[in-house]
Design a protein around this nucleic acid. Structure first.
Lengths: 342, 342
DNA sequence: CTGAAAGCGCTTACAG
DNA sequence: CTGAAAGCGCTTACAG
């Protein structure tokens, strides 16, 4: 027996297709008695609606815009690729997806992007960017125009965004801390911390989670103040080098954000790879190489593919006024060693 | 401008819808000149086909059967739930999904299930079960009837299955080994190994991966012979207890498969939780509790949701004669600590 | 408050 | 080798 359709419901309930449709979509203007007849028929025949046929008839289209920082980070490249891949797949059914970029720390450019989006007929916006007043205000203006807004990778805490798609960065920092502590073992010593910038909320949260765990559980290890690489290989390499030179009993290095390239360059140069425990974030091609070469021990990853797909599902759900399945949209903190690199 | 449709292509190429359809689906019986005209139009207008509308018109339905072992394992419960959830979602569009069960180690029952499937009009079968001649022959008969067959969780290596959906269990064992070795640190001692049965290929592979890494990288730790719990809490608890009693300098315990409940029961009883490094598999509710309580240190997980969704995509792709995206269908080996439990 | 008819973007017999 | 028409399971004006 094949699946029942609206026709079967109409026949069973003795009404027309239009009425069935009204009831199914809980539109007004149907007598209660009729509503009940239709609902009973649905129940009896075990009807479930073909959502794709419905969308087809409805000619619903979604306009989604992703706003990403422009920058040298390989994670951004991966995220961009993941968005494009998702845009080509079934999750983007009836959706038009564009990616707009603005330099990371140029508030004027960010504002320009927001102004541009406001001119257009857009249903949803996913934004990754530092938490600035410009962004907060831009989000507020979009919300005023009923646009769905989700924050990507790093949250916009004090804004009116509808949803955050990304990992819990404090927990990610704690995870890094536990692995650092356990891998270092009983050796006393110092851990160097390299970060791109302490302006970004996600970096600060990771660092705090890391520090908490180290202080609580591994008090014999001293965590050094962060040095900043500012998304610049040369600078990152220089400050890393310096930090390792000034502190002779360093047993580990935590690379909190982008900048692993500069760090590994120094480590490879020193041949230190084997007596320093190195923990970093984001499984970029460079991180992969470093894991395989044994220069880095652990990578804490946020899966760009999951982030892109989750953003797509959440944008759509909010546009349709449908509940999101929270458990499915939770972005996991992945731990990657050489052994489970796949 | 809205997306071009078959109508636009037909107009642009000066042919009928039927001809456009023939070319789009590379059906025979169209002059080469006409084919080119249509293809040019597709190119020019940037046409992409609406796959859901196509399926709707085609009235294609898929009949899929999942064959699972019946057993007390919580992982099986999770897998079953994940399959049901996937069956309710968009991935199951136009697919009818059933789950059939057969006791793990009852070849006659397994054979009966296969015979039943053969009677029906089924498009695809996903099977999780021990590698036995019964299963191998059953798969061969299904393949003879052109049914798509994928192996789930544990591979059917010498069968004609079309695809394997699951983790690399050797790599999973290696991952367990590295974490065991690094968490134990410099302490010399023994590691106990508890397994449900050594009859299952995945258990053997994990154990081999584990042993390899331990021998290579942590020679100061001695890995004890496996004790078998046979999917029975009582027995598992008993053999675990015994193993720990007979070997006084045990520093770690590796629980290779189901049976974590029996193991943790013993550990909680002994209050040993804090000086033994415990590594297990599969993030079941019990495993979660044990991680949170600090009784278990690491869980190596295979994500039941990913497995269910991947199986669904792969079954459909093979039915449609479409290439699967290998990178997307790779099931990751997840590492879970208390800190990234989410 | 309810229904008949047309249409969404495709495919499928059937006829020529 | 090619096309006109009907239909997949829905929704949407429009008319009553």
């Amino acid at each position: 027996m094949s699946k029942p359709t609206v026709h079967d419901i109409a026949r069973e309930a003795g009404v027309s297709l239009a009425t069935v449709d009204r009831v199914l979509n809980s539109r007004p203007g149907v007598r209660e008695k009729t509503v009940k007849r239709v609902k009973d028929a649905v129940q009896k025949l075990g009807y479930t609606r073909d959502i794709y046929a419905a969308n087809l008839a409805r000619q619903r289209r979604y306009e989604f815009v992703f706003v990403l920082p422009r920058g040298p980070s390989q994670f951004l490249v991966a995220l961009r690729d993941a968005i494009l891949e998702t845009a080509a797949g079934p999750l983007s059914d009836r959706a038009n997806i564009r990616i707009l970029s603005a330099p990371y720390s140029d508030p004027v450019a960010v504002d320009k992007v927001f102004r541009q989006i406001e001119q257009e007929q857009v249903d949803g916006v996913a934004i990754m960017g530092n938490e600035t007043p410009m962004v907060r205000d831009g989000i507020a203006r979009l919300k005023a125009r009923n646009v769905v807004v989700v924050a990507l990778v790093t949250d916009q805490t004090n804004s009116a965004r509808d949803h955050f798609v990304g990992i819990d960065n404090t927990a990610a920092g704690r995870t890094a801390g536990v692995l650092m502590g356990r891998f270092v073992g009983d050796r006393a010593g110092k851990v160097a911390v390299v970060v791109n910038t302490m302006q970004a909320r996600d970096m600060v949260q990771r660092r705090m989670g890391f520090d908490d765990v180290m202080a609580e559980r591994f008090p014999h290890i001293q965590v050094l103040p962060s040095v900043e690489g500012r998304d610049d290989h040369e600078l990152t390499a220089r400050v890393t080098e310096q930090c390792l030179r000034l502190n002779e009993d360093v047993v580990g290095l935590y690379c909190v954000g982008a900048g692993l390239r500069g760090v590994t360059q120094v480590l490879r140069g020193r041949g230190q790879a084997h007596d320093l425990v190195v923990v970093g974030h984001d499984l970029t091609p460079h991180a992969r190489d470093a894991l395989e070469a044994g220069v880095v021990d652990v990578i804490i990853n946020q899966n760009a593919g999951h982030i892109a797909r989750s953003a797509m599902r959440v944008l759509r759900a909010h546009c349709d006024g449908v509940e999101v399945i929270a458990s499915q949209e939770k972005i996991r903190i992945e731990i990657v060693l050489r052994e489970n690199l796949t």
